[in-house]
Amino acid sequence: MSNPSLRELTRNGLWKNNPALVQLLGLCPLLGVSNSAVNALGLALASMLVLTCSNIAVSLVRGVVNTAVRLPAFVMIIAALTTCIELLMQAFTYELYQILGIFIPLITTNCVILGRADGFAAKHNPLLAGYDGFIMGIGFGVVLVVLGALRELFGTGAVFANLDLLLGPIAADWQLTLVEDYKGFLLAILPPGAFIVLGLLIALKNRIDQQLAERATAAQPVATPAPSRRVRVTGAIE
């Protein structure tokens, strides 16, 4: 099996095969936690760390794990790493950990993480597996943060509120209020708002892909047919 290039992995993780916009994996945390930017950023960082480390670990043990217990072994690796992240959040970002609640332990069952472990890390070396996990985590996290920021903006008129829960007191004044005296739009921060905004993001990506495909088709040179040659046959009939 030929190894994909880093450029190909980057393109797949961020755009072409984005786990949130294309594969539609991990929708439970994506929709449940993205009511604010800080919640989305916290879960995005946790998911990215688990995804990267689990890919590396799975790649390292892929040659010694029996096929019959492969998936349970992968789940145990992911669960152990998720527990480590959970303990770190309890120690350093306890209030944010309480807000995220059950979605932190549910990282263990995130289809993005298990899918990359079984579909990619189990077939490639640790370097490529780690980079694939990192870039897939970035792709998933970017969509999560954009979704959270848009919902927070439409719902409250501000963005990055309570960022100090994740980054500490230094980020206490980092809130951006874009609309003063905003009355609020409750639908945006409720679960139906997550479906609506995510659907708009998917539609936007599909529209961009369509325009890029049309430009690529228009840029291709049109092959002109070669001029036909007429052969004149002369002869005598006896």
Rank of each mutant, 00 (worst) to 15 (best):
F160D: 01
G101T: 03
Q220F: 07
C28V: 13
G119E: 12
L51M: 13
D181V: 08
R151V: 11
L186E: 11
A79D: 01
A172M: 05
V231Q: 10
F154M: 12
D209Q: 04
G133V: 05
P192T: 05
N66L: 13
V222S: 04
A73Y: 15
L186S: 11
R62V: 09
P72D: 07
A158R: 10
V145N: 03
C53Y: 08
G139T: 02
I189L: 02
D181Q: 09
A223L: 13
T83D: 04
V75H: 12
Y131E: 02
L27P: 00
L60F: 11
L186P: 02
L6P: 12
L27C: 06
T83V: 14
V142L: 08
L24A: 03
A223V: 14
R70A: 15
A129H: 05
A68T: 08
N35K: 09
M89P: 11
V112C: 12
D209E: 04
I85H: 04
C28H: 05
L166H: 00
Q220H: 08
K183F: 11
V179M: 10
G63F: 13
P4D: 02
A226N: 08
I107D: 04
P221M: 04
S2P: 10
A172G: 10
G13Q: 03
M136F: 10
A80W: 01
I237R: 12
N35H: 12
D173K: 14
M48F: 05
V159E: 05
V61M: 03
V159Q: 02
F140I: 05
G141N: 06
R232K: 08
V58M: 07
Q211E: 15
Q211D: 09
I196A: 12
G193C: 07
L190H: 14
P169Y: 07
N162P: 04
G137V: 03
T67A: 09
F154N: 03
A188P: 15
N162H: 15
A226L: 09
L187Q: 08
P4G: 02
V231L: 10
A171K: 15
F103A: 07
A20T: 06
A121H: 00
I85F: 00
V61P: 00
R116D: 02
A213G: 15
A46M: 15
V112W: 00
V233N: 10
E238T: 13
G42A: 09
C28S: 12
A91W: 14
L190A: 14
A91S: 14
T224A: 08
T52L: 08
Q175G: 01
A129P: 11
I138D: 01
G119K: 04
A37W: 06
S47V: 15
L71K: 01
V143A: 08
T10S: 12
N162L: 15
D132W: 04
K123N: 06
L24R: 10
L88R: 01
I196G: 00
G119L: 06
A149R: 10
G193L: 04
N110K: 03
L9D: 00
M1H: 11
T52W: 10
L30V: 01
L6N: 10
T82Q: 01
M76I: 06
R215D: 13
D181I: 08
E95D: 14
L167S: 00
L144C: 06
A219I: 06
Y94S: 07
L43C: 03
Y97D: 09
L49G: 07
Q220A: 14
R229C: 14
V143P: 00
P225M: 08
